[in-house]
Design a protein around this nucleic acid. Sequence first.
DNA 1: TCCTTGACTCAGA
DNA 2: CTCTGAGCCAAGG
Length: 140
Amino acid sequence: MNPQRYTSPPDRAAYNARVWDIVRQIPPGKVATYGQIASMVITAQAAGTGDPIPAAYHAWGARWVGGAMAACPADVPWQRVINSQGKISLRKGKGSTEQRCLLEAEGVEFDAHDRVDLRIYAWLPSPQDLSSKRIHLLSD
DNA sequence: TCCTTGACTCAGA
DNA sequence: CTCTGAGCCAAGG
């Protein structure tokens, strides 16, 4: 019924690396959504290449971020990435307990519907934050 | 080689 | 608020 169709970024490895770089900037106690991360990658891509962004980046970016998280290195705070509804999305069937515990340990609270209030906990980096830290959004 | 299986989001009904 | 459809690929068994 819901054939989760996928597509992939032109360069999966490079895309994943950029996603991880961004996720590493999320401070403890804050969260970001897949879509938010995807937008940052798009911004970086546009700035780095000057080329227009293919529509697929907008349509599939969030899922590519999910794919990147599925293979992230140990130093990436994967638990701080949640879905746009403020809920934890985990791989099919697996519990979200671990991710929730990690977030609660950082001070993130969940409501009765297992949701995080993004108005409070969303990571809202300013352009300055991104450029002053070490996100090499511009490829090289 | 064929078949299954995905850490998503948004608009519209 | 809930539910559906669209987006249309690649790694692993």
